[in-house]
Design a protein around this nucleic acid. Structure first.
Lengths: 132, 132
DNA sequence: AGAAGATGCTTGATATATCAAGCGCGCTAT
DNA sequence: ATAGCGCGCTTGATATATCAAGCATCTTCT
């Protein structure tokens, strides 16, 4: 029955004891009602079913950002969330107390897509969670 | 004498035949007047001198984003530029011809730091260069 | 019941990232 | 000159990502 026995460990520091990358990805895949092989196909072979299985069972510690990106796009979830769970970045400082002056003007020239905006927001979150 | 003999190859597709990651990093390190060992120290041992040497000589194809991030911060250069040169993302489509509706309002609530803004701009570039 | 798939999983092979330790060379200083 | 240091570099060892191929189980169809 697998059991998995809390074989979690965590690449860097689990800290908040969040749900692991593997379990997270597995739960999402099930929610999307996709089989391992379906993901393999839809990802244009970027992620093999064998490999995804290992990731979901926690046998792979840190899949490459390529892989994570493929899954993020396929599942339509935030890449940064995966990057954090994979231990590429540390969600250490809760909030930068630094000085911030509202500057938005620059982005006016960029004509953002809705998706682009969403991704930028995600990335902003990501930026603020790492940084020393 | 080294020669290196155009042992470049490129992880994904060189396409624009830009300067390679190795040469780029080497040129910047020299500009910053740092030795391999100095970088090793300043990076808090995140990048060993041996390894950096290999990277600069093109013997390492794709250093991890951790490594790239350490170097980007140390040299104060754009992480995305390194990510592109390392082949993590493809600067394929010059410009998405897609529909974009100017949306900036959301960022008004975010009070961006100058650095954050810069990084977001970089990331926007990065986003637009990959994407199918 | 048995053929045919589909599903999750294991495993062996291969590639590659990363580092500790060491080598050889060029500088200074004694 | 020679002792020492800093330099870039090589190499062997280790860890890990990734996949092709296969296995066991379960479902469904005839």
């Amino acid at each position: 029955m697998a059991e998995t026995k809390e074989r979690d460990a965590g690449v860097s520091e689990p800290e908040a004891a969040e749900i692991s990358l593997g379990r997270y990805l597995a739960s999402i895949r099930k929610d999307r009602k996709l089989s391992l092989r379906a993901v393999e196909e839809r990802s244009k072979k970027q992620v093999s079913n064998a490999y995804l299985s290992q990731i979901e069972n926690g046998q792979i510690k840190q899949p490459s950002p390529n892989t994570l990106n493929a899954l993020a796009e396929l599942y339509e979830i935030s890449l940064e969330k995966l990057m954090i769970k994979a231990g590429y970045i540390t969600p250490s400082s809760k909030r930068r107390s630094g000085e911030r002056h509202g500057r938005v003007a620059t982005f006016a020239e960029h004509n953002l897509t809705a998706e682009e905006e969403q991704e930028l927001m995600d990335y902003l979150e990501f930026m603020r969670s790492r940084k020393k």
